[in-house]
Nucleic acid binder design. Structure first.
Lengths: 159, 159
DNA sequence: TAGTTCTTGACAAAAATACTCGGAAAATAT
DNA sequence: ATATTTTCCGAGTATTTTTGTCAAGAACTA
C-alpha cells in the first residue's frame, strides 16, 4: 500500500554536490589565465575531497561545461566565458535535473482519490521560480559579487 | 581531513514530508465545514501512510497551525483561516527551518584558504527568494487554484 | 620510458529520510 | 465504569541518498 506516491518528487535538489560544483567552477573562473587547473588545486583551495570532486567535474565535462586534459600540465578549464555559464546549468547537471513535477505518479495522472492534488501547480511554479532565478546568474556575476538585490521574475504590477 | 566544511548547508529542504504537510493542510482547508477531520481520512484521501502523517500533523499542531482533539469524533482542524496560513510556514515547521547560510563553517567565518567563498551571497539570495515566494501563497490560494502566474512581489489585493 | 593527471566504474560508509510500532492519554458513548 | 475511538509520544527500523573511497586504465608530457 501507498507505494505509488513515493519518490516522485519535486527534487529541486541542492546538496553539497551542487555547491561544490558551483564553488569549483567559480574557482576555475577566477583562475582563467592559467591554462589548466588541477583537481587537486581546486580541492585544496575550496576544501573539498579531491576524489569526490573528480566525479563532479567529470559530469560537468561530459556536459560540455568544462574541458579536461590529461597528463602533466593537464587539468580543467572552463569551456566558455564565465558570463555564459549560468548557475542553473551547473546545478542541473550535477544534481540531475530540477524536475518540476510534484505529483505525477507512475500510474499516470496526478490525482488522489477524488481528483485532488491541488498542490501540483504550487510545486510546478516553485521549480520554475528557482530555475528562473538561478538561470539568471552567471559565474561572472559571482566572481564580481554581482548577486545581491537581484529580483527574479519580472514583476507584473507595481503598487 | 576535510571534515570541517561539511554539513553546513543551505538546507532549503523540500522532501515528501513538506509535500505531505501541504497536502494534508490543503485537505483540511477543503473540509473546513466538518468539525474535525481524522488522520486516517486524510491519509486515505491523499494516499499517505497514516502513521507517518501522524508525526507530521503533530509538529504542525505543536506549532499552532492546527488543533487536534482526541477521542471519537476527534481529529484535526485548521487553527485559523486558510488565507492566513502560508506555505512557507508549513514547510518551515515540518522540515525544520530553511536555513540561509551557505558557507559558515563551525570555525567561524566563511572563507576558503584565500578569503574565498564567493558563493555565499548566491545561496543566501536563493533562500530568500524561495522563502519570499512560498511566504506569499496561502492555503486558500491553493484550493482556489490561485497559484499560477504569480510574480514575486506581493500583488495588490482584489476581490 | 617514467611520471603525471584525468577517466571510469564499482564499491562502502555515513547521514538523512521515510516509515513502523507499542503503548499512553483523552474524549465519548453505552 | 468500561469499552472504544482517536490523538499523542518516544523509540526503533528500513530504505534511500549523499558522500565519499579504491583500483585500474588511458592519455599526455618530458
Amino acid at each position: 500500500m501507498h507505494k505509488n506516491l513515493k519518490k516522485i518528487g519535486i527534487e529541486m535538489k541542492l546538496t553539497t554536490k551542487g555547491r561544490y560544483a558551483v564553488l569549483a567552477l567559480t574557482d576555475l573562473a577566477l583562475e582563467r589565465d592559467e591554462d589548466f587547473v588541477k583537481i587537486s588545486h581546486i580541492a585544496m583551495r575550496q576544501n573539498i575531497s579531491s576524489t569526490y570532486l573528480e566525479q563532479i567535474l567529470l559530469k560537468l565535462k561530459r556536459a560540455g561545461l568544462i574541458v579536461g586534459v590529461r597528463g602533466p600540465n593537464g587539468g580543467y578549464k572552463l569551456a566558455s566565458e564565465p558570463e555564459k555559464i549560468m548557475i542553473a546549468d551547473i546545478i542541473n547537471i550535477v544534481e540531475g535535473k530540477m524536475e518540476a513535477k510534484g505529483c505525477v505518479s507512475k500510474s499516470g495522472s496526478c490525482t488522489g482519490v477524488s481528483g485532488r492534488c491541488m498542490t501540483h501547480d504550487l510545486w510546478d511554479e516553485l521549480s520554475r521560480h528557482i530555475e528562473l532565478f538561478l538561470g539568471q546568474i552567471s559565474l561572472r556575476d559571482i566572481i564580481k559579487g554581482n548577486v545581491l538585490g537581484r529580483s527574479s521574475p519580472p514583476r507584473a504590477f507595481d503598487y
